[in-house]
Design a protein around this nucleic acid. Structure first.
Lengths: 143, 143
DNA sequence: AAAAAATGGTTGTTATAGCAACAATTGGAT
DNA sequence: ATCCAATTGTTGCTATAACAACCATTTTTT
């Protein structure tokens, strides 16, 4: 085969991801929100009152990451954590007023970000991109 | 607009990247090589004797990351670092015998990995994927 | 009901990743 | 020649990411 460094599609995906992260990080800096913390908040803005475990599943991340991000978001005053009565093992995350206000400001920034990312790319092309990424996901699934 | 969590192509790219990293990490574990350390090694297997600065440029990473990975690879005995006479600021990375032997074993693993990733995807589709990722890269370039 | 298994979180460790501040060296300007 | 700026690396910090080991709680078995 003799593949060169440039020939690995996985490397290209990784590079693009890093560039995207760098960009959104700069956009969120003013709001005291890190990129992954923003993903947690986005899920809470869609539906308040998720457990850390539910977030871990939705974000496909290890529960330790969620725990630390939640702890950080709580310190910043955007969320509160409480054990629900039904199950004292779980930790439920709730938006504070501060966290709700933040959504009003950050959601438009996220949508502008998406506009920039998809500039000059048609809906069909985005769908094709999603299809190919899903295919790759399946190819490495659980392997 | 009202974009839902699922609608962001950047999130999909990020998820795919994480899955790819998880997969290659498991493949490289036996060789005592972390995924990004492997990228450094791959560049050295292509051309021995690069400076940390050159690696940072090729990998589009902050120089601190390279310095720490290089330090780790040196501890593992895969490379040696030395200041070239022409410029005592630079640090040149050289493969050790151990590092060269590693390449014989790891390069085939990387190519198998790429085969798995691209399974059921045509060359044309990979090219289209690369084209769209490049377009996204340009869209967020330096912004 | 008591023991065992599963579930949900936390702590500790290693590996990325980028930024700011710093040190050493080199090259350029005067 | 000396000062200044640019280059190259390092250290310290914060954030992400996964894994192992652990603790508390709940559920399942027996």
């Amino acid at each position: 085969m003799k593949l060169g460094f440039q020939d690995y599609i996985s490397i290209k995906i990784h590079q693009t991801d890093l560039n995207l992260t760098k960009y959104i990080k700069s956009k969120l800096e003013d709001f005291n929100l890190a990129p992954e913390q923003n993903l947690v908040m986005m899920l809470l803005w869609e539906r308040d009152g998720l457990t850390q475990n539910q977030l871990a599943e939705k974000l496909n991340k290890d529960k330790t990451n969620i725990a630390r991000m939640a702890s950080s978001l709580e310190k910043k005053g955007f969320i509160k954590r409480a054990h629900p009565k039904e199950d004292r093992r779980s930790l439920m995350l709730y938006l504070t007023e501060n966290g709700k206000d933040l959504g009003e400001k950050v959601i438009p920034v996220a949508e502008e970000f998406n506009d920039v990312v998809t500039q000059g790319i048609s809906n069909e092309e985005i769908q094709e991109l999603e299809r190919l990424l899903s295919k790759i996901d399946q190819n490495v699934q659980g392997k």
